[in-house]
Amino acid sequence: MSLAVPLPCCWPDPATSASECEVASEEDRILRAVRQHLSLVFRVLRRVGLSVEDADEAAQDVFMVLARRTAEVPGPAERAFLVSTALRVASDRRRQQASRPTSALTVELPSPDPAPDELVELRRARAQLDEVLDAITPEQRTVFVLVEMEGFSAPEVASTLGIPLGTVASRLRKARENFDSMVRRLHSLGQQRVG
């Protein structure tokens, strides 16, 4: 079965009507969307500032929104819809986080690939990346994450976020400046510690 080919009727029971087959196709479409876009959705959620635990829950919420609104989302717009939904869900979660006490317990989900020593280094670097991204305004951060880290084009970002292309360009420029400035600062601090 090719991802590009529409699903045939999946229920060869003569008693099943065409509309029932369409229902099954909708479900299959959501499962395909999960397989195709879950990694992207999860990455975006993490990179706009959610913890692993929150990103896990938020990713589920994002696809539940798609499941409720499948009929409204044409296939080619699915990726943009999921990303913009992920950004909204992340924004809601950050607001909720701001109004509740921070848990002392951080859930680290297993990441089996890297060796333990390498994993420690990777997690340290990942935490520093969060530190850098936290220093950028949320609006700039979103544009930076989508363009620099996810490879979206500026027109795609403009369309996904519903903002003018010029705004994307200016946010991206500021975000890059701030990001590099923060990288320079963190690197300098690291050098001082080493020295």
Binding site: I30, A59, E121, L122, R123, L129, G190
Partner: peptide, 27 residues
């Protein structure tokens, strides 16, 4: 240093293995 930070995100920002299954179960 910047490449190292971005590379760490590439390596670590992956959904848990069972997340797709859990989403499927919620549909």
């Amino acid at each position: 240093f910047k490449t190292e930070l971005l590379g760490a995100a590439e390596r670590l920002d992956r959904p848990p293995n069972d997340l797709a299954a859990r989403i499927a179960a919620r549909l």
